[in-house]
Computed example of a mutant assay.
Amino acid sequence: MFNKTRIISGVIMVFAVLVVALIDQFVVNFIIFGALLYFAFEEAQKLFGLENANVWFALLCFILGSFSGKALLIGVLFLLLVVGYLVYKKASNLKLTLIYIYPVLPILALWQVYLSHGMFALFWLIVIVVSCDSGAYFIGKMIGKTPFSQTSPNKTMEGVIGGLICASILGTIVGVFVYDFGLALLCSFLVGVFAVIGDLLESYFKREAGVKDSGDLIPGHGGILDRIDAVMIAAFIMVALL
């Protein structure tokens, strides 16, 4: 009934996140996020069928954003540079910009949460998203009957609602250690909502590309984008509310 490989990999990733959170060294986090951006970019290239996207341009954006403390803003500026270049060259379409909109900007938004609010906020975000995803998975498997979306046929309405409830409860419990109850509850619920959107968005891209997973780097979970799709879209809520 349950995918054991997925569960084991999930437990290992949770343990890894805890270790990184406890260490909380900028250099370590910088390397990890740089690697996430690199592998996510490579996966997105295949999903979108792009051959001329330059990952080093994205990494330069990440580096400049990291040391300026304005990763998301730098990401927007770099996106505009790409748009300007394509318009200047009178490109037949602006499809190349898609990879900078997704996943580059969302990953930079995730990194911005850490740059602006520290490890607790980043850890809190991950806790909310994992709670939402795990709650939706287990509750959906146990009592899910009503299809949620054609974009993601395996999701059920019962699972999604259960996931949002889990995210709201656990997220609020963790959030009140630093933020007031109202903000913790609102942020937890909205992060859960946007996590669902992030998951659906990735499912849409994979369906359009005709693939099951964005990659095969993580056993039971697929690629990097399959695992961080929800958290990097939900990061925009943290940037907006905190």
Rank of each mutant, 00 (worst) to 15 (best):
G175F: 05
G175E: 11
V176D: 03
F177K: 13
V178F: 07
Y179W: 14
D180T: 04
F181I: 15
G182H: 10
G182D: 11
L183E: 06
L183R: 14
L183G: 02
L185D: 07
L186V: 14
C187W: 00
V191T: 12
G192D: 09
V193M: 10
V193K: 07
V193H: 06
F194W: 11
V196S: 04
D199K: 12
L200N: 09
L200E: 10
L200P: 10
E202K: 08
E202A: 14
E202V: 09
S203P: 12
S203G: 10
Y204L: 15
K206F: 00
R207S: 06
R207Y: 09
E208P: 01
E208Y: 05
A209L: 14
V211S: 11
D213P: 06
S214F: 09
S214Y: 08
G215L: 12
G215V: 12
D216C: 01
I218F: 05
I218K: 01
I218T: 05
H221L: 13
H221N: 01
G222H: 06
I224M: 15
L225P: 07
L225W: 03
D226H: 02
R227S: 11
R227E: 02
R227L: 12
R227N: 04
A230P: 02
V231R: 02
I233N: 08
F236Y: 04
V239T: 01
A240P: 09
A240H: 03
L241H: 01
